[in-house]
C-alpha cells in the first residue's frame, strides 16, 4: 500500500533531519551580569553553536540594547575562542528611562554566523553617586545586521537542543486526535449498522490512539523534565490529557463488562460517542480558563505563530502526516489480528 511506504519515508526524513540539522548560533550567557551607569567594563559573551574565529574580530559587532533607539556598542572586540567573545562597554550616565535599573538584550552580529540575541542578558543599575560620563545611548544604533537564511532550527534559551522534540511530541497528539475521530466514526456506524467489524475498528483505533497518547505523555514528560525542571508540574494540559486517557481506559473496561459481546459493543459505542464529545470541552474549553506552561497558553490551546519558523515547518508538517499514517497502520494490524482471533473463537 502506497500510504504505508509514504509514512516510512516521511518518518525516516523526519528522524534524520529532525535530529541532525544544527541549531542557529545563539548566546547562552554573559559574564558578568550586573553593572552600574557610567561604568566601563570588559564583558564576555558565551556562544552556542558559534564559530567566532571564522571571521576577523574587526568585522564582528556587539550591542547591548534597550530598545531600537537605545543601545551601547562594544569596543575593542577580541575573539577568545570559537564560542567566547570579549568586548569593552562604557555605559552612559543615565538610564534610558527614569527608573533604578534596566535589563539589556545582547546582540552579536557575525558575518559568517549571522545574528544572535539573548534577551535580558545584563542588568544596569543607576549609580546616583557618579552622575557623569560622556557616553550616550544612541551613538551607534543597531543596523546592517547579517541575516542568514540557511537550513537550521531556531536557537531558544531554556529549551536549546530539545526544540527537536517538537517533531515527536506534538505529532503524537495529532495522530491521537485523528485516531480517536476514526474510532468515533466507526462507533456511530456501529450504532446504525450493528456489524462486528465496525466495533472491532472502533476499538482498534481507540487502542492505538491510547498508545499514541501514552507516547505523547512520555515525550512530553521528558521534555518537561528538561525545560520546566520536573516531569509532572500540575500543568492544566497534562492533567486534561491524563483525564482523556482515563476516559478511554474506562471505555475498554466497559466493553469487557458484558456477557454478550453484542451488548458490550453497543453500549461501548454509545459511551465512545459521549466521551469523545466531552473530550472537546476538556481539551479546548477548560485549558483556556487556567494558566499553563505550554506555549500559546493564554486563550489559545494550540501553537502561536511565533513558535515555529519556516525551517521547522518543513519537518513538522511531514512529521504529523508520517505519525498519523503510522498510527493508522498499527491500528490496521491490530484490527486484522482481532478479526482473526474472533474468527478462531467463532464469534464472527
Amino acid at each position: 500500500m502506497w500510504w504505508k511506504t509514504l509514512s516510512v519515508i516521511l518518518l525516516l526524513y523526519v528522524i534524520t533531519t529532525g535530529l541532525l540539522v544544527p541549531l542557529k548560533p545563539g548566546i547562552t550567557h554573559v559574564t558578568p551580569e550586573t553593572f552600574k551607569t557610567g561604568q566601563t567594563a570588559e564583558i564576555q559573551f558565551h556562544g552556542y553553536n558559534t564559530f567566532y574565529s571564522r571571521s576577523a574580530a574587526s568585522d564582528i559587532r556587539i550591542w547591548l540594547e534597550y530598545d531600537s533607539l537605545h543601545a551601547v556598542a562594544g569596543q575593542n572586540i577580541r575573539i577568545l575562542s570559537d564560542t567566547t567573545l570579549s568586548a569593552a562597554f562604557t555605559f552612559p550616565a543615565r538610564l534610558p528611562r527614569p527608573t533604578t535599573s534596566v535589563m539589556l538584550n545582547a546582540i552579536i552580529d557575525h558575518p559568517a554566523d549571522g545574528v544572535s540575541l539573548l534577551p535580558g542578558a545584563i542588568e544596569v543599575a543607576l549609580d546616583t553617586a557618579a552622575p557623569s560620563g560622556a557616553a550616550s545611548w544612541n551613538q551607534t544604533p543597531v543596523s546592517q545586521l547579517h541575516i542568514k537564511s540557511d537550513f537550521t532550527f531556531p536557537y531558544r534559551n531554556v529549551i536549546y537542543e530539545s526544540i527537536r522534540n517538537t517533531y515527536f511530541h506534538v505529532p503524537m497528539w495529532f495522530a491521537l486526535m485523528f485516531l480517536f475521530i476514526a474510532s468515533v466514526v466507526y462507533s456511530v456506524r456501529y450504532l446504525y449498522h450493528p456489524q462486528p467489524d465496525f466495533d472491532r475498528r472502533a476499538a482498534g483505533y481507540a487502542e492505538t490512539g491510547l498508545l499514541f497518547g501514552g507516547l505523547g505523555l512520555v515525550t512530553g514528560m521528558l521534555w518537561a523534565h528538561f525545560a520546566w525542571g520536573a516531569a509532572w508540574s500540575n500543568d492544566i494540559k497534562q492533567l486534561m490529557t491524563a483525564v482523556a486517557l482515563l476516559i478511554y481506559l474506562a471505555y475498554f473496561i466497559l466493553r469487557r463488562s458484558f456477557d454478550e459481546p453484542e451488548k458490550g459493543a453497543r453500549l461501548a459505542a454509545v459511551y465512545n460517542v459521549f466521551a469523545f464529545a466531552s473530550l472537546i470541552p476538556l481539551l479546548y474549553i477548560v485549558p483556556r480558563m487556567f494558566a499553563s506552561l505550554h506555549p500559546g497558553a493564554t486563550g489559545n490551546p494550540a501553537f502561536g505563530s511565533e513558535d515555529l519558523d519556516n525551517t521547522m515547518r518543513l519537518v513538522f508538517y511531514p512529521s504529523i502526516i508520517g505519525f498519523t499514517l503510522l498510527g493508522f497502520w498499527v491500528a490496521e494490524l491490530r484490527i486484522r489480528f482481532q478479526r482473526v482471533a474472533d474468527k478462531a473463537m467463532g464469534l464472527d
Binding site: 483525564v243 474506562a250 466497559l254 463488562s257 458484558f258 466531552s278 470541552p281
Partner: peptide
C-alpha cells in the same frame, strides 16, 4: 445499569466525563 458491576462502572465512567 446494564452491566453486573454497575457501582464500579458508574464511578470510572462518570468521573472523567464530569471533570470539566
Amino acid at each position: 445499569a446494564k452491566a453486573n458491576n454497575s457501582a464500579t462502572l458508574m464511578a470510572i465512567l462518570s468521573f472523567p466525563v464530569v471533570l470539566p
